[in-house]
């Protein structure tokens, strides 16, 4: 297994799948400003996916492009977190998913600035600037909705209850991470979980939301085992390239 390829693919697929999910809000936002905000964030994520998948394709060295990786793999070849493929449900649910992810991404990118791999460090530096805006946006919405009306509180508490079981996977680590850590590509990520927990708890606390710990956490996305939702995403994401191979516009 090419560990560097595998790692970059994981980062790239998180951006791609969440970017696609958010783009589903285009034309459906609760207010125009949020419609534009969510599609802007989707654009940043798809842009990051492009940089990451292009690099992954280079590392793989099989002559593929970012587009080949984005559009021509089957579900079991995707390495994204199960969290990011979860459906939008409602605005609160979407903001909660985004918040849990953004907090992780921001801390991770801060750490990846120290990556021994120049390209990973460069993509992290670029993406971090955008991610700070995303996290501020999603954090403020979690607080507004949690500490808002009875209805908004009920809905976003529901979202937290549904999504919490996917959060342990954010800190999933296997031989890919270990070998890249040993070779200096990855910096020390051991404090990632603690830093994430501190931030997330502080915001949820302000939002008057409660975490209900689970007995079971899903964490097989990195190995290609996904929820049923990914297949539906891919059906839409890949349709054009599958139906009209190589088409451009």
């Amino acid at each position: 297994m090419n560990h560097l390829f595998e790692y970059v693919l994981r980062l790239g697929d998180d951006s791609l799948i969440l970017g696609h999910r958010l783009s589903e809000w285009c034309g459906h936002g609760p207010v125009l400003e949020e419609d534009i905000a969510m599609t802007n964030i989707a654009l940043d994520l798809v842009g990051q996916a492009n940089s990451l998948l292009e690099y992954a394709a280079n590392v793989e060295g099989k002559g593929k492009t970012a587009d080949d990786l984005a559009f021509l793999r089957i579900d079991k070849e995707y390495r994204n977190l199960i969290l990011v493929e979860q459906p939008n449900v409602d605005f609160g649910h979407t903001m909660m998913r985004q918040f849990l992810f953004d907090a992780y991404r921001k801390i991770l990118f801060e750490k990846l600035l120290e990556s021994g791999d120049e390209q990973i460090a460069a993509i992290a530096a670029k993406s971090l600037k955008e991610t700070k805006y995303h996290l501020k946006h999603s954090s403020e919405w979690v607080i507004r909705l949690g500490d808002g009306t009875e209805e908004s509180h009920r809905r976003i508490q529901n979202a937290l209850d549904t999504l919490w079981r996917y959060t342990e996977e954010l800190f999933y680590s296997d031989e890919v991470d270990e070998s890249l850590r040993a070779s200096g590509v990855l910096p020390d990520l051991s404090s990632l979980k603690q830093e994430w927990t501190n931030y997330v708890h502080a915001v949820l606390n302000e939002a008057t939301l409660e975490i209900k710990e689970e007995t079971w956490y899903f964490q097989n996305g990195r190995q290609g085992y996904h929820s049923e939702h990914l297949g539906y995403i891919l059906a839409e994401l890949q349709f054009m390239q599958r139906a009209y191979p190589g088409m451009e516009w």
């Binding site: 400003e33 534009i36 905000a37 802007n40 964030i41 654009l43 940043d44 805006y133 501020k136």
Partner: peptide, 13 residues
């Protein structure tokens, strides 16, 4: 400030 996200990625509204 109306929104941190405007007509393009680089603009606020």
């Amino acid at each position: 400030l109306i929104s941190q996200f405007g007509s393009t990625a680089c603009k606020a509204h």
